[in-house]
Structure formats: C-alpha cells, structure tokens
Amino acid sequence: MNNHNASKRGAPPHHFIDDEWLALRDEPVLDAARPIVDPHHHLWDRPHHRYLLPEILDDLNTGHHVRGTVFVECSSMYRADGDPRMASVGEVEFVNGIGAMSASGVYGPVRVAAGIVGKVDLRLGSFAQQVLEACVARAPDRFRGVRHMAAWDASPEVSSLLRPPPKDLLLDPAFREGYAGLGRMGLSFDAWMYHPQLPQLIDLIDAVPDTPVVLNHLGGRAGLGPYAGRGDEVFKAWKASIQALAERPNVSVKLGGIGMRLGGFDFHERALPPTSEELAQAWGPYVQTCIEAFGPSRAMFESNFPVDKSCCTYRVMWNTFKRMAAGFSESEKADLFAGSAVRAYSLPAELAQPAPQAAAA
C-alpha cells in the first residue's frame, strides 16, 4: 500500500482520517452485548471533513452495543448574525436538532447527542449566565454543561488548537466569575488542558468547589515537543496531578482521547493500523492509573470521534477499552462503559441498560 498519507494522519489542526488505511484492519467485536454510552464525540461540517448524523451512525453501527452519546463542543455551526457573545448558542441549536432526529427512532435505537456539552465564553463573567440560560432554553432536555478549552502550551508542537486560549485561562478572575455560574445552574464543566496545567485546574476546583468537573482525555498527558523522550518524568508529574484531582469528589475522568498525536505514540506512522491488543498495551498504564485513582464509578471510556478515528476505527477503539477493562467486575464494567457517563451527564437511566432485543439475545 502507498503510505504517503502517514504524515497527515491525525495531524492538527484537521486530524486527517485515512479511510483506506483504516480499512486494512478489522477485528471481531468483543463483548458485543455490553451497553455503551459514548460520552465524548463531535459533529461538524467543515471544508476538510464532514461528520454529521449519517457519518457517526456509520461508526456507531459497527457492532458494539452503543445506546447513547454525548456531544462535546467543537466550534460548530456558530451563529453568523446577532450578538457575537451569543454565537455559540448556534452550536447547541444545531446539535439539539440532531439529537431530536435520533430520538425519533427513524435512524435506529441509538440516541445520538442525548447529552450536549456546549461552549460558552466564561470570560464574559456575569454575562456568561445569560448565554448559559439561552443554551438551556434551546435544548432543555439535552444541554448539560460547558467546555471552555484551556489547552495552552509554549510549544507549537503541543499547542495545536486553531484558536488557542490565552495562557493561564483558568486563573483569570473573569473566567472564574463565569465558571461559578455553572454550579449555581446545576451544569457541569468539561476540562480540557495539557498535563502541566492540571495544578491550575486543581486550584480552580478548590476555589469554586460546587461545580461538577469532567476531566477530558486522561488529563492531556503530552508526549510531543519538550515532553518527548521524558516518559518517566512526565508520567510521574501527570500521575501526581491525576491522584490529586481524584481527591476532589466532584471530579470524574474520561478515559480516551489518547489516539491523538499529542500522546507521542507512533501508530499513525505505521504501514498497518494498530490492533486493539497493541493499543491496550500502549494505553493501559495511563487508563489503569486513572481508574485506580478515581474508581470505576467516576471514570468513563470515551471515543473522541472523529478526532481519534485518525488512529483506529470505532470497532477497534471499543475493543481496546474492553481489553483494558477485562479484569474488572461486572458492576465496574457497567460503570466504565455506561453508568458513570449517565450519572455525570444526568442522562436517562435506560441508556445504561441493555436494549430488550440485546438482553433477549
């Protein structure tokens, strides 16, 4: 096979997906009847890639028993008109429409976007509450919280967002004023940053302790740029922050997002896509560290699709998670694959249960 796309796979900012390469790897589905709630994916229509309801259904319907999903903001379909402070409400409206389409049952039993994590610029301070109220009004049955990405690093190899946040965002008094409104409204905060910033997240949580926090992507352990070749040192610092965060009872963690190039693994460069065994071996120490710290009741596997699709297919991704969870009890697996996500995002309890036809089988 011509491997000329290897350097483009997963490269930010567009995270190129090489479908021809991915098709070279297939596996039978493991533990196919296990209910899954995928708590982290995106939807967009961009010049370089489209990932809307048909595309995500193509991934969800590849053999695993996915019951529902949570959409997480990705600057998609912002309003072009009106008050620019309200522009991000357009994304919530857009995703709520997809959620309503899925809830009709016309597209099958899975409930896409049963929960919505939107974007509100919390630096708006007290005005952020008006934007939050608008989001709730547009999607009262699905809007669950906000992600305002704080991922910043001095290295351009690490800091790869199209619109990177300012340094020390979480310490900004205006941001903290807006953040405080989440807890008052019963909304959660999805935290995405790189591992050297985790102490700032701890400081934020201790200063404003009433907001539920969902830590994204294993806490953003970086393995590129200045962090490459320093595996033991990075792991030690990252683990200390993970353990400190786990001491805060209002924090849970998403187990995934490690298929991005940020992690420093070489899977994107290989002639063949990785197997679930290879991924489980490589990612296992980080996932196990998080589960040991938080416990299965505050940890949840996530796909981070379509971003992590640059590394492997949806089928291989969830096979990987099932391999890493093999040693846990049945109740612990139920939490890791569905229950923790249902609780974190106040989703319908039935999403964590087998569908009647799956239970009968």
Rank of each mutant, 00 (worst) to 15 (best):
M1I: 06
H4L: 15
A6V: 09
R9E: 06
A11H: 08
P12Q: 07
H14M: 07
H14N: 13
D19T: 13
A23C: 06
L24E: 15
A33M: 03
R34I: 11
R50S: 12
Y51W: 12
L52W: 08
L53M: 07
D59F: 05
L60K: 05
F71M: 09
V72L: 14
M77C: 09
A80M: 11
R85I: 14
R85C: 13
R85D: 15
G90W: 01
G90I: 03
V92W: 00
N96L: 01
N96W: 00
I98H: 01
I98P: 01
G99W: 00
G99T: 00
A100K: 11
M101P: 02
A103R: 06
G105N: 08
V110D: 09
R111Y: 03
R111G: 02
G118T: 04
L122N: 12
A128E: 12
Q130N: 15
C135A: 13
V136E: 02
R138Q: 08
R138A: 08
F143C: 00
V158W: 10
S160P: 03
L161Q: 14
P165K: 11
K167V: 10
L170G: 01
G186T: 08
F189S: 09
A191G: 10
W192F: 15
W192V: 14
Y194E: 13
H195L: 05
D203V: 00
L204Q: 06
D210W: 09
A222W: 06
K236E: 13
A240W: 03
A240Y: 05
S241T: 03
Q243E: 15
A244P: 04
A246E: 08
P249T: 13
K254R: 13
G257H: 12
R270N: 02
P274H: 02
P274G: 01
E278N: 04
E278H: 05
G284M: 02
G284R: 00
S303C: 05
P306I: 06
C311G: 05
C312V: 07
T313E: 05
Y314F: 15
R315H: 04
R315C: 10
N319S: 06
T320C: 08
S329K: 02
E332K: 01
A338M: 03
G339E: 01
V342K: 08
P348S: 01
L351E: 00
A352M: 05
Q353D: 13
Q357W: 09
A358Y: 03
A360F: 04
